[in-house]
């Protein structure tokens, strides 16, 4: 099932938006303009773009720590202000959480972004409640949680899949298997290197997909989301992919593995080849898309840099709803 060319080009642009966002962010991080820690989603753009394409603002997704891209995409697509994700990462008052969340805690329910949790995958439990509420209200929404392969090691993985299964909750598990959890190879950290093997016992559809082929990822997400909206209960998708970012200390993976994923399996390059083969679009047309997106990201970075810092007095606000008096 081939995608129509307009959709494919849109996804190409989305993937570039994610990559340009991360490249720009990395540059600013190295300059010391972005505080804290930085985990980027470069290499995993097809997975994120496919999810973003099918999740509506009325659905929800719990993004993982490599999800600046999907956060920005959702923010831009549904609200037209992707720059507020950038501003959040810069710790500015104009950010989606006014600088209280940062890279690992950005949320905006109006675009379906229910917030990352830097205790990896804690929202495997939270997603159940959103799904339960929608099930009780008979709303055909999808509650998605995005989890890394390493995160599957948590006990909540079992609790969540089990409860979603017994209650037939509308949960989409999007497992981004990029081969490693920091330095731990997936096959060493789990009883199976294929996470679908671990999920199968819970009786939901478990599908493994090439996370670097945008057409395949897009089609599988569509199937999963349709199934969930139809009331068939939870669905588990495992995206096989690879992250370009090594360790904070540098690259630790074999040179040939790095070359293979960056050159042969780059999701953007693969999409570009596909578009070239299926349409009359020229390399120059695609280069122009890339340049436009890079330019857009630079304006976001400027917006973030020129935004005010939060008022320090806000640091103790909103600890309690209704203040200390608990009104």
């Amino acid at each position: 099932m081939a995608l129509d060319i307009e959709t494919l080009v849109d996804l190409y642009r989305d993937m570039w938006l994610i990559r340009a966002f991360e490249f720009g962010l990395e540059r600013e991080f190295k300059k010391g303009n972005v505080p804290g820690m930085l985990h980027t989603g470069v290499g995993q753009e097809a997975t994120q773009a496919a999810l973003a394409a099918h999740l509506k603002a009325t659905d929800c997704f719990f993004p993982d720590h490599r999800c600046h891209g999907i956060n920005a995409l959702a923010q831009e697509k549904h609200q037209g202000d992707g720059e507020r994700i950038m501003a959040e990462l810069f710790g500015r008052a104009t950010g989606v959480c006014s600088g209280k969340g940062g890279s690992l805690h950005s949320a905006n329910p109006r675009v379906g972004n229910f917030g990352d949790n830097a205790v990896e995958g804690s929202y495997m439990a939270t997603v159940l409640g959103v799904a339960l509420a929608w099930q009780m209200r008979k709303q055909p929404n999808v509650a998605c949680c995005i989890i890394g392969d390493g995160t599957v090691g948590r006990g909540e993985f079992h609790e969540s899949l089990n409860m979603a299964a017994i209650w037939k909750l509308p949960v989409l598990y999007a497992c981004v298997n990029n081969g490693y959890a920091i330095s731990m190879p997936v096959g060493k950290g789990h009883a199976s290197a294929d996470i679908v093997d671990l999920a199968r016992g819970y009786g939901m559809p478990c599908v493994q997909v090439d996370g670097n082929e945008i057409e395949l990822a897009y089609a599988e997400v569509a199937r999963a989301v349709d199934s969930i909206r139809a009331g068939n209960g939870p669905y588990f998708l495992e995206f096989k992919t690879w992250r370009w970012q090594g360790l904070f200390s540098g690259e630790f993976r074999p040179a040939e593995e790095v070359r293979y994923w960056k050159e042969d399996r780059d999701p953007i390059r693969l999409a570009r080849q596909k578009i070239g083969a299926q349409s009359s679009l020229q390399a120059a047309d695609l280069d122009r898309i890339e340049a436009e997106v890079v330019q857009q990201i630079e304006t976001w970075i400027d917006f973030a840099k020129n935004s005010p810092m939060p008022d320090p007095a806000k640091a103790t606000a909103d600890v309690y709803v209704g203040g200390e008096e608990l009104r």
């Binding site: 939270t126 339960l132 009780m136």
Partner: peptide, 11 residues
């Protein structure tokens, strides 16, 4: 988690 998630959407 279920309690918190459902509270996020108003229960």
């Amino acid at each position: 988690g279920t309690a918190v998630g459902s509270a996020m959407v108003g229960l």
